[in-house]
């Protein structure tokens, strides 16, 4: 417990808990979305679209670009009102550490770290889902943006019911923009 920081104390209950309902990919890993990504990023690695070349590699056939991992489970957005929701694709259904910090005045968000790990490359037909857990919340810290908390969570990506195919550690700094430049 930190006697001088009731906001931080109030967040302790979120640690180890899911960040929200897990996501289920709306579609299986599929060639049209892979092609869209390959064209958008001009990534011409032949293992993503050229079956003949991919079959000659240790991939044994076409695979999805690994960095697409998070793309497969991105929520279907409600475009209307997305700006008013601060960019959130849909309304937040449940309270989590982010909504609690917003409510406490720490409305600023800056992503600071992303760590993607891939257990295997995905293939057309894989159907992903995610689970998440809040790993840690730092003590209140002052940065150039003001006072805030570093919040770290881990999302686990599953294919089918029981196979882990990847993980992402994500860290953000949630800060109070009104405290920029002030004393700690």
């Amino acid at each position: 417990m930190t006697a001088d920081d009731p906001v931080r104390d109030s967040l302790e209950r979120f640690i180890g808990k899911p960040m929200g309902e897990g996501a289920v990919a709306p579609e299986e890993v599929n060639l049209p979305m892979i092609r869209h990504w390959v064209d958008a990023l001009d990534d011409r690695n032949p293992i993503y679209l050229d079956e003949a070349v991919a079959a000659e590699t240790r991939m044994g056939g076409v695979v999805a670009p690994p960095a697409m991992l998070q793309t497969w489970t991105m929520p279907s957005p409600v475009i209307a009102g997305i700006a008013e929701r601060g960019g959130a694709p849909t309304a937040m259904k449940s309270e989590n550490v982010v909504t609690a910090l917003d409510a406490a005045g720490y409305v600023g968000t800056l992503a600071t770290n992303s760590e993607l790990e891939f257990e295997r490359y995905l293939r057309v037909g894989d159907r992903l889902k995610t689970t998440s857990a809040l790993e840690s919340i730092s003590p209140r810290k002052r940065t150039g943006l003001g006072l805030g908390y570093f919040v770290t969570w881990i999302t686990t990506y599953w294919a089918g019911e029981d196979e882990i195919v990847g993980r992402q550690l994500f860290r953000i700094f949630k800060f109070d923009p009104s405290t920029m430049g002030g004393a700690a």
Binding site: W37, L41, D42, D43, N45, P46, I47, V53, A54, T57, R58, M59, P65, P66, A67, M68, A111, T112, N113, S114, E115, L116, E117, F118, Y121, L169
Partner: peptide, 26 residues
Amino acid sequence: TNGYVSKFITDWAGPEAMVKKIAIRL
């Protein structure tokens, strides 16, 4: 950003390369 990091790596390492981890500070 992660996609371009992956492209940067495999444009160099080639089609047999398997990316296992991309850890970045933003």
